[in-house]
Design a protein around this nucleic acid. Structure first.
Lengths: 113, 113
DNA sequence: CGATGTGCTACATTTATTGTAGCAAAGGAG
DNA sequence: CTCCTTTGCTACAATAAATGTAGCACATCG
């Protein structure tokens, strides 16, 4: 790739006005550590380093990248003194994931049997 | 250097070290195209090529990798003559994602304003 | 038979992620 | 004030993953 195509489709979430916001969301959430970060923040804010520890010592490079993306997406925010925490919208998204937890239990039971 | 750590974590399924199935699931779903593939299969089976077209012409290499992973995870299956379709478990997972669609609409409204 | 469509793979190029080190700034003792 | 720790964050080389193009063997048409 890397042709001289100007800013075309840079894997940005900015294409959410194309009438398919679900695709942009699926793309954002489909990046490494994104789902995990949101999940770890479900019970309250964590500092960036506590988050790294919770996320199995993910590299700070990608962690910061994801935090920036999620912040830009309005799903998390940096709370002075408390680290990163989910926004109202982010909390709503985490509630969407609650059934996922239940599903995971059922899923693991099948795959291990 | 840090490569001769005594054989331990093989990073086979990131997040599964803790034994918590939700981490393994979050890791699986957090790989590129995985969420999208499941989403595109929500209304019924698609052939591998139709799936590639639906997924914005994703490369066949990663597509086959994801299809194998999802098949191994018991979320999709290859139906002779009909292509790939979600299993019973896969359909349950997609139902979990239905609220995600509604959320995406709300989310895009906020992020584009 | 030839033409098409399926699932799937090889392989070189490009992109994303990792691991390690380190920075400036903001406190908290001493 | 200085020393010490922690915060959010960045640089950069090394590694792993994804992309794009081409093609395979097999099956199903016409």
């Amino acid at each position: 790739m890397s042709k001289q195509t100007p800013a075309k489709k840079k894997r940005a979430v900015r294409g959410s006005r194309t009438g398919r916001p679900i695709m942009a969301l699926l793309d954002l959430l489909g990046r490494r550590w994104t789902l995990r970060i949101l999940w770890e923040l479900r019970e309250g804010p964590l500092t960036s380093r506590a988050l790294r520890t919770a996320c199995d010592e993910a590299s700070p490079t990608v962690m910061q990248t994801r935090l920036s993306e999620l912040r830009e997406a309005g799903l998390i925010e940096l709370l002075p003194g408390d680290g990163y925490g989910p926004t109202g919208l982010g909390r709503d998204l985490n509630e969407t994931f609650l059934p996922l937890h239940r599903f995971a239990e059922r899923w693991s039971k099948q795959t291990t049997d």
